[in-house]
Amino acid sequence: MLVFFFEVTDMEIMTRDFGQVTISDEGTIRFVSPIYGFEKYTEYVLLSDTNIGESFIWLQSVQEPDLCFILVDPRLTYPHYAPSLSEEARQDLSRKGLNNPVYWAIAVIPQEFRKSTINLKSPVLIDPDSKKAAQVILDEDYPIRAPLIPQEKGEG
């Protein structure tokens, strides 16, 4: 007798930048505290491009093909970025399934890409085990628009 331990729930979604993509339910990221201004959208998948590497990922909405954020590993530009959450915030997130979250920054990448910024004040936290996520606003004084490419000294 065949026994399925896991319900196989692959489904196809349309994405903004990758066309049609097959995703699995266990790969779906669920926001317990949504992206501010996008409260309606709580389910996303993470996509990456091997040419670009894993410091940039696409946070693609499952519900809305046109909704997609580019997340950047903040340590790419800011190796010392290590924000701390208040004990209260940490416990609250832990209750919601975010025990060991990874910090990502939402990027704004304009046509003039040298002016790209990342939001270090309000990172997106993703727990890779529970697949739960949250955007949090830190108490610490980090910039909301931090340059993704730091201006080199002497460069115009």
Partner: peptide, 12 residues
């Protein structure tokens, strides 16, 4: 943050 999120979502 809401404003920056909106700009981020709009920049393709």
């Amino acid at each position: 943050t809401m404003e920056v999120n909106k700009i981020a979502a709009e920049s393709r």
